[in-house]
Design a protein around this nucleic acid. Structure first.
Lengths: 218, 218
DNA sequence: CTTCTATTCTATCGATCGCTAGATTAGACG
DNA sequence: CGTCTAATCTAGCGATCGATAGAATAGAAG
């Protein structure tokens, strides 16, 4: 390995880069941004093998990005503080801004409902003020309990197909799911539109909203 | 490799992390933050083999972090825009904030003159207003020409030992070098203090100053 | 103390990455 | 057109990393 005077400092800096250099770890961080989770929950939600997940989490811990809390036999992981969440937001924003293939990949992954058609935070604020919107939280009941947008109704995506008739017809539905790369809300919007409803997806999902609203408190 | 639904998106995001996961690349980015450079200059300043440097630079280019400009037979590299510089600043700040071993390493690397004793930007602004400071740029003449703090005098560190007597005795000397991890200015401050001068190092060096002053313009 | 569960530790394999050295391209100069 | 220089491309080696499976730990429950 090449040696240069400042090497020790840059090697430690590179630890942070390494922590952010594996797709699995980036996904885990986004999952943790939903709220505290056990290793098992993370493995299940992310679709990773358990042992693998554990190992990645420890790397994230070594980089100072996540914290652990023991409760009985379970270990709960969470982002170490809200700064981590904000940093992740900036990291993703920065990456999207200068990697054209990433932007394209996101477009393809989400479809138009999740990207170009999505409601921005500024738009949402205006719509909420004018009372012309119903916020629908598509995540699991557990995730909704951990925290959700003010005024949002919990309709887990699995139940949406059976329950969309309950939703009022006189307002636009703005649906959101976990985060900016989650396909759930774009899909739900497509379903609702096919049912003749006025529906849009919230840009960035819950995570992105939280990132912009944690700055003040916490 | 583990496959999960959002994998393609997170794989691309991980490209950015990978770009930031090698000490050499992080050093190159900081060097480029001084201004445009040819591959050869970078290799020389960083102390890396030329071919190695070229290869790393191309990875940075693939990640959208640096841009190239051809001029005759030489190729000049530079940060792609000032956003990159700001992002790097945040990356380093974030890493320092949550990796205790990194902070410690920096302390040891720079000594007290470069860390705890250093002048912050806010302090410097006040000192400049009151006219009680002489700014000394310790970098090479070429780097000084590329850009420097307003009012700074160029005294390349090699010449300092011969020229410190020229510097006025009635003001505090604030010396700066390339960046936050550069040992040049702390060393210079030590030398000047041993010569009975009132001297301090500028926290973060030229790069850090530039990062905070490019936000407005550019 | 034993048993059970959640998680981590250890060892191994294959893939990737960084470093090195030789061959090659792109442009400048005579 | 050949020659020179700067930089990149290619191939090979050793080190590291991620995935996997078996062994081991820490705490809860009996």
């Amino acid at each position: 390995m090449t040696e240069f005077p400042e090497a020790p400092v840059y090697e430690r800096l590179a630890h942070l880069g390494k922590a952010l250099s594996a797709p699995v770890r980036l996904r885990l961080l986004d999952l943790l941004d939903q709220g505290e989770c056990t290793v098992e929950e993370l493995a299940q939600r992310g679709g990773f093998p358990l042992k693998n997940t554990s190992s990645h989490l420890q790397q994230l811990r070594a980089a100072g990005l996540v914290a652990t809390r023991r409760e009985g036999t379970r270990i709960h992981y969470s982002l170490r503080d809200s700064e981590v969440s904000r940093f992740l937001g900036r990291f993703q924003e920065f990456a999207e801004a200068r990697m054209p293939d990433l932007r394209q990949e996101i477009q393809e992954h989400l479809g138009p409902e999740g990207s170009v058609d999505a409601v921005t935070h500024a738009e949402l604020d205006g719509m909420v003020e004018r009372g012309e919107v119903l916020l629908v939280d598509l995540r699991s009941a557990a995730e909704y309990e951990e925290g959700h947008l003010p005024g949002a109704v919990s309709v887990p995506s699995r139940e949406l197909a059976d329950r969309w008739a309950e939703l009022p017809w006189d307002t636009t539905i703005v649906a959101y799911c976990q985060g900016p790369y989650c396909v759930v809300s774009p899909r739900a919007v497509r379903l609702l539109r096919e049912a003749g409803r006025s529906a849009r997806s919230l840009k960035g999902g819950y995570v992105d909203w939280k990132r912009h609203h944690d700055s003040a408190d916490d």
